[in-house]
């Protein structure tokens, strides 16, 4: 009771997610003796990186007042194609470099497709991305014959499993991109325009902002980060399952954004919030595993966390 009263003194929007994370962290460290082990913590960070990276781009889209539900399917699609590229080029260091570019390129093109239909076709983002969610998954299944894309490279998994200074590569990528996205959102015209469009599209238009272009790029940027995640995931497993890869990634990415305090109605949001949101989800998953809760129930808990986050934000208003 006292705590909640004190919290009111803070700017709740700003500090709410961070406080939730700290509380969860403390509870977890008491609940399980293994939680605080470096290995476990690094493991959590690595696991949240994949959807967290997508969440960064998703933050942009949600700030414009949109949504992208196709990111999960797109992960499998871009990952699958990138493995085809890798195998075609022989799997050496040079091939891996091209593969990374290919994954990002395919992701960006797929996101750009979403963006074109949404801006030029004037179709609601929800509808468009539900459509492409089905399309990307179906194409992936078709190309692989509903099986797996398997890499023949020995070098590739080394990247996926590798680390630098003890911290796994995906975590570095996540941190690096988070800083980049934070810069874009807070210190560039593009970031300012994203917020303007999400707050009031008509004002943005009258203010000489190219609304369609800004929107289009938001979806293309999500595509790019999906490409990054897909190649990290492909490298980690040295394969991409056409049916399983990226499954429900859209849910985790959107959840991270929402838990981080970004408003679904658009106009404002923070990158740091999304990063914290992703980590909160990761810790929850980790705890449920360690406490031996049935994996079938984990979805329930995740759902409750999302709903609770929104309820708390609603209350503040």
């Amino acid at each position: 009771m006292k705590l909640s009263k004190r919290l009111k003194g803070f700017s709740a929007d700003k500090w709410g997610p961070l406080l939730a994370l700290l509380v969860l962290f403390v509870i977890s460290s008491f609940a399980s003796p293994y939680f605080l082990k470096t290995r476990n913590l690094l493991n959590i960070l690595r696991q949240v990186s994949y959807t967290g990276i997508i969440g960064l781009g998703m933050t942009f889209v949600i700030i414009t007042g949109g949504i992208d539900l196709s990111v999960g399917s797109m992960t499998a699609w871009a990952g699958g194609i990138s493995i085809l590229v890798l195998n075609a080029l022989g799997g050496g260091p040079w091939a891996i470099f091209v593969t990374i570019l290919a994954a990002i390129g395919v992701g960006m093109a797929s996101g750009a497709f979403n963006g074109i239909i949404i801006t030029k076709g004037r179709v609601a983002p929800f509808i468009v991305t539900v459509g492409t969610m089905a399309i990307f998954r179906s194409l992936t299944l078709y190309i692989s014959g509903a099986g797996e894309f398997r890499s023949q490279s020995n070098l590739f998994p080394e990247i996926g499993m590798g680390d630098f200074l003890g911290i796994p590569y995906p975590v570095w990528v996540f941190i690096g991109l988070a800083v980049l996205f934070w810069m874009i959102l807070n210190h560039t015209k593009y970031g300012r325009y994203l917020c303007a469009i999400g707050s009031n599209e008509k004002v943005a238009k009258y203010s000489a902002i190219n609304v369609d272009k800004i929107r289009f790029w938001a979806y293309s940027i999500v595509g790019m980060v999906v490409g990054v995640t897909s190649v990290l995931l492909a490298a980690r497993l040295n394969s991409i399952s056409s049916s399983g890869a990226g499954q429900s990634y859209e849910l985790d990415a959107i959840a991270a954004v929402i838990i981080g305090g970004t408003s679904m109605s658009g106009g404002s949001g923070t990158i740091i919030g999304t990063v914290i949101g992703a980590i909160i989800l990761g810790i929850v998953n980790n705890m449920l595993n360690m406490l031996g809760v049935s994996p079938y129930l984990q979805g329930t808990v995740k759902g409750l966390v999302i709903i609770a986050a929104v309820l708390i934000q609603r209350k503040k208003k």
Binding site: R192, C195, A196, S199, N200, K202, V203, K205
Partner: peptide, 13 residues
């Protein structure tokens, strides 16, 4: 408020 300013933005923005 409909086409001139963004009410959720501060003066600078």
């Amino acid at each position: 408020q409909g086409a001139g300013i963004i009410t959720s933005f501060d003066m600078i923005k």
